[in-house]
Design a protein around this nucleic acid. Structure first.
Length: 831
RNA sequence: GCCGGGAUGGCGGAAUAGGCAGACGCAGCAGACUUAAAAUCUGCCGAGAUAUAAUCUCGUGAGGGUUCGAGUCCCUCUCCCGGCACCA
């Protein structure tokens, strides 16, 4: 008998119509506030799940679905496990695209953003995710950025926000400065256009104060590659600061050059010095004869873009200053050069060059015919025969009293010696720079600072927040902050002396907004505080964060810094914002390339939802492959999920072949299938292996189908089985699970039901089939009782028909029985 | 250059802790149902040998090794993807 026949009998047809049931349940969930999260629920532990909030570009992308729906499934699973789950959503709504769109079209960034949010909110609702929309945040609303500004003031009061002059990255196209993290290969992270260095006074957050603590991320339950990326970005180096006396005819001149080196052991091999062209000493020390050449070189450097300057395969350039300093260890004179391969922003902006043991210095020395002096033994060859720098270890040579000492030991000894003499000291350097947060753009949160001629830099009093972003402003990028053009905005009174003063007109980097949004979700409507301390204790830190690893050294590092600063102000509990973080991969176009309009490989999620339904689309995205891996979206594969859900639908709706008489064998088989699936799906979800969880559910569906087609089943055990199937399905496909749950007569809502538990003994069958190998090669299968001993298994094996054929009279030299897994018989031919 | 991750059928992928390679799905092939198609259902679906089979051989990027047994562990190499890139 065919299930489908009876199901399709006239008058009995109930077809799976995703479009109808999905909107039905989305409405009911909203009407009954099913996903409304209270801060406290009796008997339930709070658990905070979070997926990165989107930028309101105006159109939800498959990438959003790929990132958010598995995250939703995970949150739903933990909800069913009995936790009180916070799973919020919002919009990272400040940023350049709004301005760019406004410049192209006849609209305002605010209008554009509002419209986009409205559209995207609807698109997000179609996912059927358990977002608590009452906690939505929008970082561009004054109710939100009031607190972004408030945080700025707290950082300022705690000495973590400062205005300083520094060489900064300037994007020529965006006409604004950028943080170091936002410059990729010398180009702007957003618009990919050229970035150049400018010396400007800007607002910085002192993230470097937390370098050491940020580096210490080993205990975090985060993907190892992301932690490594952060550690590399912070870039800790231990070495020494060493000072070299300037050689001068004037005995009262005690000026010196300080360098940072990780190789104090090679100090005797320093044969020249190199200063960054921007180094302040350059103008002081350059001799009359070299003045022109040096000035020309500095001019050239300024003209070079960051891409040109940072290119490693470019030949080294530089000029001699004419000046010398003295290596205090041996009183030898050392010529001082300048070159752009030395960065003014790292260390002291000057280096001692040891060409024998540093490849960059080696290349420079070769180009300009400078002395190469080996000081580590392995390189004890005539100077002309040296082909590259030796960076390995060895005993010191040419180093006077340090000769013969292992260079690793010499690092310590020479550093100590320098310290004793007052010529240097041990030093730790970080590659990480302070976080530059000023932006010369309109669509961002104004920086709440005031410049007063008399009082200097004065923070806006907290009670005057928010400093609202004026709507009516000419925001065309001119390289000058648009807010500067608004007299109403700029002109103000000094909060201290009440005299005429000017407001800061730069806005904040939008990464500032996203550094604390997860804090605001906990208490989104609080008008007197950024977050209530009691509520913070209830939810923070985030238990499970998910999102793309492209944010590894930007958002994720900034947020960690921010949270630690907030902790030190006593405002949030714990040391880290995100206890667990998991990065999903990237979904690609069907052609395996990044989806983009220009490539024409974009798969619009709305179309997929219309065609297949949200549940099918969700499950397909989770089924494609490992979540962390991402990969191409195969437009044809989704039909498999659609077929599966239809089978589930028919399986549960079908009333045929059910009876009231129990068949013990069938019941046992059903229990086994059922509990096995519960066990597998449970561990898979916990490990975020959604693809295999869904494969398990498919297998279960197939097995139930087969059993149902071939046997008559007791209706009680059948309902128990299908109920469990629906519960296991609920996190992945919340709508169909809810609909079928209702159809079989269960109470609303399946999503308030607890996750099924499996019974260990049911997950195993009495008799199992194990492979039997001869010399490690598969020869037969044998059916054995699960707890059989080796002897019993061997007896069963000997009863096999093929025993004499495959073993015969050969000598058995070893028997390996792995309980419940395999039997391997090692034989040797009798000669 | 440095630091990560990876390579398994026609395709996406699966495989506790070293134990039946290819679960699950797509595509494909054959059949059932149908006037027909779609949908659905059933079966097959890594390569090769043999008479269909039973069975055997080969097979997880390449080469070597450890082991009764290797996709999994060790060594060497190739290619692909991601990050950083003159950080002294």
């Amino acid at each position: 008998m065919n299930n489908n026949d009876s199901h399709n009998a006239p008058g009995d047809e109930v077809k799976y119509r995703p479009g109808i049931i999905e909107s039905k349940w989305q409405k009911k969930w909203a009407d009954t506030s099913l996903y409304r999260t209270e801060d406290e629920v009796e008997g339930k532990e709070n658990r905070y799940h979070l997926t990165m909030l989107p930028y309101p570009s105006g159109d939800l992308h498959v990438g959003h679905w790929f990132a958010m729906t598995p995250s939703d499934a995970l949150a739903r699973y933990f909800r069913m496990q009995g936790y009180n789950i916070l799973f919020p959503m919002g919009f990272d709504a400040f940023g350049l695209p709004a301005e760019n769109a406004a410049l192209k079209g006849d609209t305002h960034p605010q209008t554009w953003t509002e419209q986009n949010i409205k559209k995207m909110r609807d698109q997000l609702r179609q996912m059927g995710a358990m977002f608590d929309w009452q906690r939505e945040v929008n970082s561009s609303l004054p109710e939100y950025y009031k607190w972004t500004q408030w945080w700025f003031l707290q950082l300022f009061k705690n000495g973590l926000a400062e205005r300083k002059k520094a060489p900064v990255n300037w994007c020529l196209d965006c006409e604004t400065v950028l943080a170091n993290e936002q410059v990729i290969n010398g180009t702007c992270e957003r618009c990919e256009s050229t970035v150049e260095q400018r010396e400007l006074e800007q607002w910085f957050f002192r993230i470097t104060d937390y370098a050491e603590e940020l580096l210490d991320n080993g205990e975090l339950d985060w993907p190892e590659p992301v932690k490594i990326m952060q550690r590399n970005w912070i870039g800790k180096s231990i070495g020494a600061d060493v000072s070299f006396r300037m050689e001068t005819n004037n005995p009262s001149d005690d000026s010196e050059i300080r360098v940072f080196t990780t190789r104090p052991d090679t100090l005797y091999g320093a044969t020249f010095m190199v200063l960054a062209p921007e180094h302040p000493l350059v103008s002081k020390i350059t001799t009359q004869e070299q003045k022109n050449e040096v000035a020309n070189y500095i001019e050239q450097t300024k003209l070079a873009t960051e891409i040109e300057r940072q290119s490693t395969d470019r030949e080294k350039t530089g000029v001699f200053t004419g000046a010398y300093c003295v290596n205090r260890l041996n009183e030898e004179p050392i010529p001082i050069w300048i070159s752009d391969y030395v960065l003014s922003t790292y260390g002291t902006g000057a280096i001692m060059a040891v060409p024998a043991h540093d490849q960059r210095d080696f290349e420079f020395a070769q180009k300009f015919n400078l002395q190469i002096k080996p000081v580590v033994q392995q390189l004890d060859v005539p100077e002309l025969e040296i082909e590259e720098a030796y960076t390995g270890s060895g005993k010191l040579i040419n180093s006077e009293s340090f000769n013969g000492i292992d260079n690793i030991v010499a690092i310590e000894q020479i550093t100590e010696y320098l310290a004793e003499k007052g010529w240097g000291e041990k030093k730790t350097q970080y590659r990480l720079r302070d976080w530059l947060i000023s932006r010369q753009r309109y669509w961002g949160s104004p920086i709440p600072m005031i410049y007063c001629k008399a009082c200097g830099i004065v923070p806006v009093p907290e009670e005057n927040l928010p400093i609202e972003l004026p709507f009516d402003v000419e925001f065309r990028p001119t390289g000058e902050s648009p807010l500067n053009l608004s007299d109403d905005f700029v002109n103000t009174k000094c909060p201290e002396c009440n005299e005429e003063a000017r407001r800061e007109t730069d806005t904040m980097d939008t990464f500032m907004c996203s550094s604390w949004y997860y804090i605001r979700y906990c208490d989104p409507n609080n008008e007197t505080n950024a977050i209530d301390r009691d509520i913070a204790n209830k939810w923070l830190p985030v238990d499970q964060y998910t999102g793309g690893s492209e944010h590894a050294v930007m958002h994720l590092l900034y947020a960690r810094f921010f949270y630690k600063a907030a902790r030190d102000m006593g405002l949030v509990p714990g040391d880290e914002p995100f206890t667990r973080y998991y990065s999903q991969g990237q979904i690609l176009g069907p052609d395996g390339k990044r989806m983009s309009k220009s490539r024409g490989n974009v798969v619009p999620p709305d179309d997929q939802v219309t065609k297949w339904g949200a549940d099918t689309f969700r499950a397909y995205l989770m089924f494609l492959g490992p979540w962390e891996q991402g990969g191409p979206y195969d437009i044809d594969g989704i039909v498999g999920i659609s077929r599966w859900l239809n089978r589930v639908w028919n399986l549960v709706n079908n009333k045929s072949n059910l009876s009231n008489t129990e068949n013990v064998e069938t019941t046992e088989k059903l229990r086994y299938l059922n509990h096995n699936a519960i066990a597998k799906v449970t561990t898979d979800i916990e490990n975020k292996q959604f693809n295999t969880a869904i494969a398990t559910l498919m297998s279960l569906t197939n097995d139930l189908y087969t059993l149902r087609t071939n046997t008559t089943i007791d209706s009680t055990i059948w309902k128990e089985t299908t109920d469990n199937l629906l519960l296991l399905l609920a996190p992945f496909c919340p709508h169909i699970a809810e609909e079928l749950w209702e159809i079989v007569g269960n109470n609303y809502s399946i999503h308030q039901h607890s996750w099924p538990e499996y019974i260990e003994s049911f997950t195993k069958e009495e008799n199992i089939k194990i492979p039997m190998q001869i010399n490690g090669k598969l020869r037969e299968h044998i059916l054995i009782p699960r707890n059989a001993t080796e002897t019993e298994v061997l007896e069963l094996a000997k009863k096999l028909e093929r025993w004499s054929e495959i073993v015969g009279s050969n000598e058995i030299i070893r028997i390996i029985y792995v309980p419940e897994r395999l039997l391997n018989i090692v034989i040797k031919p009798v000669t």
